[in-house]
């Protein structure tokens, strides 16, 4: 099993190492998904913040490609689950089967025992199957036959859902949405990127595949380095003001949870590190606000993005 389950203390990488690793990862992902640098940045931020991502967009925009590219680039084990209504929880977590030769039960790990799990069209799985992912996403372990099984420390769920087809779909409950760190929309590429895409596909019959630029330990080291990014008191208060504003905003029936607040701070830390800073500035908070909030807040009046924009516009930025 090729999971990253190292327990030895990791050497502290220098800032040069960190930026080199991040640069390689960024380059590979930008090669996979053309013209979507901001999406790539946010995906990287989520990866460094140990957060799961929900892609919410139309078919054919590169959701699966990006997920596969990421799995390849980080050099981890990639598994994919195509969610359908008849998918069972054990199909996701794994199950024990009786070995006829040894007369013993053997555990067959499911797709969650990987580094990157792509749950395609997750809203087509039944709620029962969706909830099988709860424990795996939140605690990075699953309990099978009463036995807890640890998952990879860099376990990451990339789920996709199609927002336009609602027939036969089971919308994700709020409890599960809150376990995702961010919701990303990819959108159509720009003209130059599409031109490049056409040019690239003309020469080959295979999909473009990313190269592995990191290994599991390096991902863990990057994730540990994110915790060292400083968040000053004034910036934390700004974050709190924003959270308080979502709780009092008339467009949001439910405000931001403390878990969401913690994830927002962590993603902002990761975003600061992606921008070669070891401290968080209000721009970081604002830049990750929309994907972090849109996954867990639903507006009941105006569009969610618009409501999030009004939240940010109504809170003062700490000044110099």
């Amino acid at each position: 099993m090729n999971t990253m389950t190292t327990t030895e203390p990791l050497a502290t990488p220098t800032s040069g190492d960190i930026q080199a690793w991040i640069g390689g990862l960024r380059r590979e992902l930008n090669n996979v998904l053309l013209g979507k640098t901001q999406v790539v940045e946010l995906l990287l931020a989520s990866l460094l913040a140990r957060g799961h991502v929900l892609f919410d967009d139309l078919p054919g925009l590169g959701k699966t490609t990006l997920a596969k590219g990421l799995a390849k680039a980080v050099g981890g084990k990639f598994m994919r689950v195509q969610c359908t209504p008849d998918l069972l929880p054990s199909d996701v977590t794994g199950f024990s089967i009786l070995n006829q030769k040894t007369r013993e039960f053997e555990f067959r790990p499911g797709p969650v025992f990987s580094d990157v799990l792509l749950a395609d069209e997750i809203n087509r799985a039944t709620p029962r199957t969706q909830s099988a992912l709860f424990e795996a996403m939140a605690e990075r372990q699953v309990t099978i036959d009463g036995e807890p099984q640890s998952l990879s420390p860099s376990f990451l769920v990339l789920a996709t859902q199609n927002p336009v087809e609602s027939v036969g779909a089971y919308p994700l409950p709020e409890a599960q949405l809150d376990r995702f760190t961010m919701k990303l929309k990819i959108g159509y590429p720009d003209r130059a990127s599409e031109l490049e895409l056409l040019s690239r596909s003309r020469k080959t019959t295979n999909d473009f595949e990313a190269q592995a630029v990191l290994h599991g330990d390096q991902i863990v080291q990057l994730q540990q380095a994110v915790t060292g990014v400083a968040v000053e008191q004034s910036v934390r208060e700004y974050l709190l003001d924003l959270a308080e504003c979502t709780r009092n905003h008339r467009s949001f029936p439910l405000g931001l949870s403390p878990r969401g607040l913690l994830q927002w701070q962590r993603v902002a830390q990761a975003y600061a590190m992606l921008n070669e800073r070891n401290f968080v500035i209000p721009e970081d908070i604002q830049a990750v606000a929309a994907p972090v909030l849109s996954v867990r807040l639903t507006s009941n009046s105006i569009a969610t993005d618009q409501a999030i924009e009004s939240v940010i516009a109504s809170v003062s930025v700490p000044r110099l």
């Binding site: 500035i281 209000p282 721009e283 516009a313 930025v317 000044r319 110099l320």
Partner: peptide, 26 residues
Amino acid sequence: LRYSLRLLRLRMWLWNEPLPTHATLQ
């Protein structure tokens, strides 16, 4: 730096272009 930026903000306010509350330094 701190006081120069405040004065710059005040000067911009005089030009009727006040700094929006949500606008960051950058």
